[in-house]
Nucleic acid binder design. Structure first.
Length: 595
DNA sequence: GCGATCAGCT
DNA sequence: CACAGCTGATCGC
């Protein structure tokens, strides 16, 4: 959950993702995406009154975010006060103090964030320097390098401050799968379920308002079906989503909601109440997509299909490594970024800017390279015969956001993440791949195999001897099982899902399930990250410069280990590092503890 | 009766 | 614990 207070140091007269308290008096509002925890105060009567009395204050967001916001009647009063902006179109905004007439100009650029439809990061450029507010984001390897407005010529643009979510600023989240792996895992899971009979149905337990559309479109495409959801209104102008969702409940894949849907599932009913026409009981599998893995809240969660987390602790490397990246390593021709949720519009609304506040500006464009990441996990509660007989359903939790599609890239970024950072490190480690224009693939690091019960207990104890990290939620690395399979190939996926399927169909009377886990196939990466992380947290004497082996940009320099330790120390104490202020929004309990 | 805050739950 | 919420109780206006 975002706990950002809404204001940035450099441009304190604008508010972002917070609209309560003092934020009401901002000269401009910015909404990064349409999730409730970023909309605090947005439907308050105080704000409503402010809008009516002000001639200049407006809410700036993407077109898609505007569409999603206004699809909820509670926010319809915003209609005349929203100024939607095109992605990657620097726009000048005048921030006017209505009492004094004092004016400050600022240029804002919306950068696709890949978190949910319409989600953006805001790049502000003005008298107080360049500032990046990331909101929640999830980018894939190569995505950041394609963000031309973060670059200037062959270098990363000078950015004074970055305001970034710290949700995954925690050593327990350090493994990130590719979107492909996540999606394939779910596709196989669903395939192996719904192919068994027309009475085998899937319920996607989607908590957040948006962010699962990528999952819907891929499932719909793969199984030539539509996903049942409660309401289509918000997608009415987004045909690429609309094609794959329906309010007809005669489908095998559901993402419908009901206030008591958990109870419904317990009673072997879908939230929409759909049943087989001939009265045959449905066999329901419940899949819970989310950004996080929810541990073993239920003791019965004894099949872990996959547990992946984002390791975000190398925050400041985001900027540092951006500065290290040479932009000539990727082929600009290959860059295609296509966020999901593109509005179908009949006319250009850009001229809507009104008030003479905004002017389209032209900045130089460049290409550059970067990183990627994503997290995922899914745990799956296995069924005992008893459970199956009494409930006819199977509960799975998977965590990874199946959101924004990025057609050609593999890896992804976690939300609010640092994922980027981690991926930067991966890129460095895998520089040969980078140099050959191929981003590193998750499969290079992970393989799949079955864990024995003893391994399960070891992995779930949260203590890995190989990483020396305690409390990790990531299933740990068991190198003895690498055998011939070093990557999660399609066959690996097949075997994974086959294992699961067999488990489902054949082991139902087993009182104790085994555990299926996608494991790292090569642990050196993890080790390296762990060491770096420990440098940061514990400041040991170990050598760290190996993390920066990649050839750097000509004018930049590689920090020595002592320098790095100082940087880590400064970062840990909240001091500014390098030339960039990194404002870590205090979501992480780790950070909250330290302050 | 509404909003804000908090505890609890998933 | 964390996601991104939702519900329900309590308190103040």
């Amino acid at each position: 959950m975002s706990s950002f207070a809404g204001r940035m140091k450099e441009y304190s007269n604008i508010s972002l993702d917070r609209f309560d308290r003092e934020n009401i008096h901002a000269r401009a509002y910015f909404l990064s995406h349409c999730h409730k925890d970023h909309m605090k105060g947005l439907k308050g009567p105080l704000l409503k009154r402010k809008l009516q009395s002000s001639r200049t204050v407006r809410l700036y967001c993407s077109f898609v975010t505007k569409e999603l916001l206004l699809s909820n009647p509670k926010y319809s009063f915003w209609e005349d006060y929203i100024v939607p902006l095109e992605l990657e179109s620097p726009t000048q905004i005048s921030l006017v103090d209505e009492a004094s007439g004092e004016k400050e100009d600022i240029v804002v650029t919306l950068l696709p964030a890949g978190h949910c439809p319409g989600s953006v990061m805001f790049l502000f450029e003005g008298g107080q320097g360049n500032v990046l507010y990331t909101g929640d984001f999830r980018l894939a390897i190569g995505d950041a390098s394609r963000i031309e407005y973060l670059h200037s010529g062959s270098r990363v643009k000078e950015i004074q401050s970055v305001y970034v979510d710290s949700t995954f600023y925690d050593p327990r989240f350090y493994q990130i799968p590719s979107r492909d792996v996540c999606l394939n895992g779910i596709l196989e899971l669903v395939r192996n379920w719904i192919c068994q009979s027309p009475y085998h149905v899937v319920w996607l337990n989607c908590k957040a308002a948006y962010g699962y559309e990528y999952l819907f479109t891929n499932l719909g495409e793969e199984f030539k079906t539509q996903i049942h959801i409660n309401n289509l209104a918000m997608f009415k102008k987004m045909p690429e989503i609309l094609n794959y969702v329906t309010t007809e409940n005669k489908t095998q894949i559901h993402a419908c909601r009901h206030p008591k849907d958990e109870e419904f599932l317990q009673g072997n009913r879908l939230p929409c109440g759909s049943t087989a026409s001939d009265g045959t009981p449905l066999q329901i599998i419940s899949i819970k997509p989310s950004t996080m893995w929810f541990g073993e809240r239920s003791k019965k969660t004894n099949v872990i299909i996959n547990v992946f987390h984002v390791y975000l602790s190398l925050l400041f490397n985001f900027i540092y490594l951006l500065n290290q990246m040479c932009r000539n390593q990727l082929d600009p021709e290959a860059f295609i970024y296509k966020p999901l949720g593109v509005l179908k519009r009949t006319r250009m609304e850009q001229s809507f800017c009104g008030e003479a506040h905004m002017t389209q500006m032209h900045l130089s464009m460049h290409f550059n390279k970067t990183s990627v990441i994503q997290q995922t996990e899914y745990t799956c509660e296995s069924v005992t015969e008893d459970k199956l007989l009494s409930h006819n359903y199977l509960d799975c939790t998977e965590s990874n956001d199946e959101e924004e599609g990025n057609e050609e890239e593999e890896e992804e970024v976690g939300k609010g993440d640092m994922s980027i950072i981690m991926e930067e490190i991966k890129l460095e480690e895998k520089k040969d791949q980078i140099n050959s224009h191929d981003p590193p693939k998750w499969e290079d690091f992970y393989t799949s195999s079955l864990l024995t019960d003893s391994q399960l207990s070891q992995s779930q104890s949260g203590c890995s001897s190989s990483t020396r990290l305690s409390g990790s939620q990531t299933p740990e690395l068991f190198s003895e099982e690498t055998d011939e399979e070093t990557s999660v190939s399609s066959e690996g996926q097949q075997s994974l899902s086959s294992s699961l399927s067999n488990h489902m169909s054949q082991n139902q009377n087993s009182p104790v399930s085994d555990t299926v886990i996608l494991q790292p196939g090569q642990s050196n990466l993890i080790f390296t990250e762990t060491e770096v992380h420990q440098d940061m947290m514990d400041l040991p004497d170990s050598q760290t410069s190996s993390d920066f082996d990649i050839p750097c940009t000509p004018e930049s320099k590689i920090p020595g280990s002592q320098e790095l330790r100082e940087l880590y120390k400064k970062l840990a104490s909240g001091e500014d590092v390098l030339s960039v202020n990194l404002y870590i929004l205090p979501t992480s309990p780790l950070l909250q503890k330290s302050h």
